[in-house]
Design a protein around this nucleic acid. Sequence first.
DNA 1: GTGCGTGCAAAGTCTTTGCAAACCG
DNA 2: CGGTTTGCAAAGACTTTGCACGCAC
Lengths: 151, 151
Amino acid sequence: MKQSDIMNALRERIKEKKYKFTRQRQIILQAFLDSKENHMSAEDIFAMVKDENPDIGLATVYRSLELFTSLELLKKLDFGDGRSRYELNDRNLKHSHHHLICLGCGRVVEFSYDFLDGLKDKIEREDGFQIVDSQLKVYGYCRECQKKNSI
Amino acid sequence: MKQSDIMNALRERIKEKKYKFTRQRQIILQAFLDSKENHMSAEDIFAMVKDENPDIGLATVYRSLELFTSLELLKKLDFGDGRSRYELNDRNLKHSHHHLICLGCGRVVEFSYDFLDGLKDKIEREDGFQIVDSQLKVYGYCRECQKKNSI
DNA sequence: GTGCGTGCAAAGTCTTTGCAAACCG
DNA sequence: CGGTTTGCAAAGACTTTGCACGCAC
């Protein structure tokens, strides 16, 4: 999905819900699109944004990220480091991607695997649970940290 | 695993690491064993404990839970409600159990499914990642909340 | 006895909220 | 213009930390 499409999605969903397409919201979403980092926290975004826009407050970043999440443009993640992180909810791109979290260096790597196909039926049948979303976190040690530890 | 076995495991692992088997640590672990609730927060434990032991401080509860987790007696969980929760790390009982989190009522139900068997090789081979543990969270709506919403 | 563990309160970190001013539509 | 949204600072929620005292070993 192109960057401009995502910004357009924001514009549309905001209009639909009668919210306002403010300068701050554009800037904050753009920071996501510009960033190479996949899993940013509110502080990360704030840092990216405040150089060129010193007038934007941290509270606005928090409020915007929450809004974008409710509009299903972002997903809120938690890697257990005490802060919420966000990623683009690019549902068209990868159907199901998950996270490998290194216990050594804290790096987070993504991987794709559609184990849910088989699981979904089982859960809905046996537990009567209607699935909306899922998150798989796999903890362990990445290649680099395995090397470091074995020396 | 019997309750007394878990307490013994605590005693052994504490001795092994030259920590101390204090009254507070026993009481706090016992609270876990006595509780019917599976996923308790530090405050939950503190509430259970403070009636009979008003001298135990919340900080001690936090410190004990962290110790037990490092001794692999407990697992630290996060269901996105802003506080850490813990469960017994009863590895002998269920090999791999995961959590269904209801977006309606917040209830957490456990389910077992060993999808990891197939996944583990793939991750280790393709990503060179050495798996230690994994957590699968499935978000959706439980039976009761589906009924409520459809009325 | 010695040093780890505890209780208390204070500090820390992340996040939310109240309110007047600014802004979008 | 009118109701949202924002910035700021303050408050809130959870967790960690500093320090003197107490307890396990």
